[in-house]
């Protein structure tokens, strides 16, 4: 990877205070970089802190610890004119197409909101631009005066995409943009996003809870578990030789299209429930469900290390020092 770093996340933590003296570690020390023009997939079970990561990056939440740098600038410290710039350059697509559009605003108002805030397209240009955007995302300009409840989930998600495109972003955080949609519609939206990426030179942080769709769109993938990154590498690498036991489980959960293989192949069944992020297990957070857990796993937190060039993993199985002992 010789490309330019666009986003740098260093030891990011986000802890929520829940109740008296209780801390929920939604994100607990994760680090990754995103390069210009790539798609970085972030995968993990529901509740593992993916949305929190995305929202902390875009500064919807203040981080508890650690740094997020966009183009070399500390995001939390961007103020004034630079802030406005940041708000244009970094955009977000949301998970729930039914909650992400204001029911009181028609499509033109929804899409135009960013342009109005940044006074990008004054007067007549505004309407023209909205029509253009609608066509870009595969809707018609007649839809501009309609209200969100008149659209299907997939169409709404397209409106949400148009809204974020309206301010000419460079980097889009897509927080499970397809998980609320039908499978057939999922593919359409993913393809739309891919095309837009090519046309507009976009960089994506693509969040999803299963690996199936992510592998089609991502260049690199990070796997999250209970607020921690457990593995990160290129998509091919992750499929070819996954290292972390949790990644293996996620991969085996992807259905295979061929029914004969699907029936005979071994599925690794995850045992137990996800532990509470308020009270995570000691040592390796995955040890309560890990089929390969060892003694050391409960005593020491595995180190986030580069097992192979560009392939990071946090697991005692791959720690030479601890293994040798």
């Amino acid at each position: 990877m010789t490309a330019e770093k666009l986003l740098e996340v260093k030891h990011l933590k986000k802890h929520f205070h829940v109740g008296k003296n209780q801390v929920l570690k939604a994100v607990d020390d994760i680090s990754f970089d995103i390069y210009k023009g790539e798609t970085f997939g972030l995968v993990g079970e529901s509740g593992c802190g993916k949305s929190t990561t995305g929202r902390t990056i875009i500064n919807l939440y203040n981080s508890s610890e650690g740094h997020v740098q966009f183009n070399g600038q500390e995001v939390a410290h961007i103020r004034g004119r630079k802030r406005k710039e940041f708000n244009q350059k970094v955009q977000m697509i949301f998970q729930d197409p039914y909650a992400s559009l204001n029911p009181r605003m028609n499509v033109a108002m929804c899409i135009g909101e960013g342009m109005d805030i940044h006074k990008l397209y004054p007067g007549k240009k505004r309407e023209k631009r909205i029509h253009e955007l609608l066509e870009t995302v595969g809707l018609q300009k007649e839809h501009a005066s309609r209200y969100p409840h008149e659209f299907s989930g997939g169409q709404r998600q397209r409106i949400g995409i148009a809204r974020s495109l309206a301010v000419n972003p460079e980097f889009i955080i897509a927080d499970e943009p397809i998980s609320a949609l039908d499978v057939s519609v999922q593919a359409q939206v993913v393809n739309l996003m891919k095309n837009l990426q090519k046309e507009h030179n976009l960089t994506y942080l693509f969040i999803a809870h299963d690996l199936a769709m992510v592998k089609h769109i991502s260049d690199r993938i990070g796997v999250m578990y209970l607020g921690n990154l457990v593995e990160m590498t290129t998509s091919e690498d992750l499929y070819r030789e996954p290292l972390h036991p949790y990644t293996n489980i996620l991969l085996s959960a992807i259905p295979v299209p061929d029914p004969s293989i699907e029936q005979t192949r071994d599925r690794i069944i995850v045992k137990g429930e996800v532990p509470s992020p308020v009270n995570p297990p000691s040592g390796c957070v995955f040890r309560t469900r890990c089929p390969e857990a060892m003694d050391i796993c409960s005593q020491m937190k595995p180190v986030w290390q580069e097992a192979k060039p560009g392939h990071f993993v946090a697991c005692h199985l791959y720690e030479e020092t601890s293994h040798a002992r």
């Binding site: 708000n87 955009q91 729930d96 992400s100 909101e113 960013g114 940044h118 949400g160 809204r163």
Partner: peptide, 25 residues
Amino acid sequence: AEYVLASRVLGGSNSRIIRKHLLPN
């Protein structure tokens, strides 16, 4: 609500969010 977050991500001010999103709803 996500549409309020969306407005904030777009740089919407508090007054805008209250006027355009919260009060109408």
